[in-house]
Amino acid sequence: MLTNNTREKLIKAFLWLSGLIIVAILFIIIAYIAIKGVSAINLDFILEAPRRAGKEGGIWTTIVSTVYLTLVSLLIAVPIGVGSAIHLEEYALRRSWFANLVNLTAETLAGIPSIVFGLFGFVFFVIFLQMGWSIISGSLTMAIMILPTITRTAQEAILAVPAEYRENSLALGASKWQTISRVVLPSAVPGIITGIILSIGRAVGETAALILTAGSSLGMPGGLLDPARTMSVHLYILAMEGISMDRAFGTAFLIIVLIVIINYLANLSLCRMSQVSRQI
């Protein structure tokens, strides 16, 4: 028989080990990619356009495409997502049929695999709307994919704003929209940023849906109607077609770096906008 004390220690050790495993997995992956990738990375790799299908040159055009596509997706999805969250939390009657429908739709959208969105985007945006393989087709498809995340997180953030803020603002003679735009949304910004960061991760990491909608052209996209190859798509093609494993790892490492940078910038700019940084 184990004494209570030993059992307590065993459980503690197990829980500690679980935590350690998580940290170890992340560390090993990043270390592995960094070690394999760093050798491929130099300034030319980052700043030069790819040549010979990526065998030579750098990955600059794919970095630009990734940022471009992610930004356009966010520009489309954030206003719609935050808007529907505001509608659901502030305007819709609880349990109205429309609120239920929007909620159900958001949940269903979140569960659909990305390749299905890709197929839809291909048929609808690329072919039916004749947008072709382009930044705009890819961004619209991505926007649909990240919409549920943005809506959900914004909803939770808005719900978490104390009801007293609303009461106080309304009692001062503010209109409903003044209350939402000046008190509720600024307080909800940190939560909304969380949704945006999750979405950025998804957009930067997406492959299948983007091959179908944005194409895999290695050229530099000049406008919304140009095709583009994002870094993840590039990584996939480099690895699958056996073009260069070293360069695949180099790209993978830069994807991680890019995500860290974008997250940091998103945090910074949105905090500024809402003035949350100097209030808390």
Binding site: E167, N168, L170, A171, L172, V276
Partner: peptide, 15 residues
């Protein structure tokens, strides 16, 4: 509500 102000139970300052 401009003419009739209100102070609530819990002081709720805006952030």
């Amino acid at each position: 509500r401009r003419k009739v102000g209100m102070v609530f139970q819990k002081p709720s300052v805006f952030p």
